[in-house]
């Protein structure tokens, strides 16, 4: 862990209880976590473990009911209002009435940037995700993988240092997913952003992350945090090395331990 760098995300004793018709549901309980600048942190766990909820709390899309969270040294709400992060959802969520370039330009429009500034940033981010030439297309004219790349471009467009990704490649097939994983790593290496990445795929988590946060359900909590010993440069075939497999085994053990009291 890059312990000396300032914390981008710091959570302590974080808890969130949803009030539902079937009584209260503890989605997060007692989460302590510090994420430093430039880290790539994956959250992995079975469904219901609160990994998406945790990401939404960081993004101020949910309010915690106990504990504290700070993002870039501010409260989560202040950070959201300062547009401190870009968020990538499970689906591309592009607006079908806007072309790709106008979708990518959406946050820039809302921030009120000048047309020239918008055009320049749109061009730069579309280059970053290899979507040059598709500026004038509508989302429904693109494949699922390209749509998700456009949504990543949209999250990158306003240059936030923090990127929150909620199973962004979950709906894509494995070939496209491998390709996008590679591109994401390359992008991370080039931009030095901090990335929080929710996934339910062990190989994906191990391949991408500098740190893997293993979570378990009922109540949603962090059951293990695993530091990756893999180098920053990771070709796809690193996934066959013993080092990679050892980390994957540790993650699997962590997941099983979190589950052990379950029937």
């Amino acid at each position: 862990m890059t312990g000396t760098s300032p914390a981008v995300v710091a959570a302590s004793k974080l808890g969130l209880t949803f009030q539902t018709n079937d009584g209260p549901v503890q989605a997060l309980s007692n989460v302590d976590l510090t994420i430093g600048k430039g880290e790539f942190v994956s959250f992995i766990g079975p469904s219901g473990c609160g990994k998406t909820t945790l990401l939404r709390v960081i993004a101020d899309l949910e309010k915690p009911t106990s504990g504290t969270i700070s993002v870039n040294g501010m409260t989560a709400e202040q950070a959201r209002e300062k547009r401190a992060y870009g968020y990538v959802f499970q689906a591309a969520a592009l607006f079908p009435w806007r072309t790709i370039e106008r979708n990518v330009g959406l946050p820039l429009e809302i921030m009120g940037l000048s047309k020239a500034e918008q055009a320049q940033r749109i061009k730069r981010t579309l280059d970053l995700v290899n979507l040059r030439g598709f500026e004038k297309k509508y989302p429904w004219q693109l494949s699922g993988g390209m749509q998700q790349r456009a949504s990543i471009a949209r999250a990158l467009a306003f240059d936030a240092d923090l990127l929150l990704m909620d199973e962004p490649f979950g709906a894509l097939d494995e070939i496209v997913r491998d390709h996008l994983n590679e591109q994401l790593l390359e992008l991370w290496g080039r931009t030095n952003k901090t990335i929080c990445f929710v996934t339910h795929s062990i190989p994906e988590a191990v391949y991408l992350s500098t740190r893997i946060v293993v979570m378990s359900p009922r109540p949603g909590r962090v059951s293990d945090i695993i530091e990756s010993t893999l180098p920053k440069q990771r070709p796809l075939d690193i996934r066959e090395t013993p080092e990679f497999l050892a980390i994957a085994a540790r993650v699997r053990d962590g997941l099983r331990a979190g589950h052990s009291y379950d029937d």
């Binding site: 993004a59 101020d60 899309l61 959201r80 209002e81 300062k82 547009r83 992060y85 870009g86 968020y87 959802f89 969520a93 607006f95 959406l106 946050p107 809302i110 921030m111």
Partner: peptide, 9 residues
């Protein structure tokens, strides 16, 4: 989509 707009404040 509405959450997306919220993340843009």
């Amino acid at each position: 989509e509405r959450d997306l707009m919220r993340t843009y404040a």
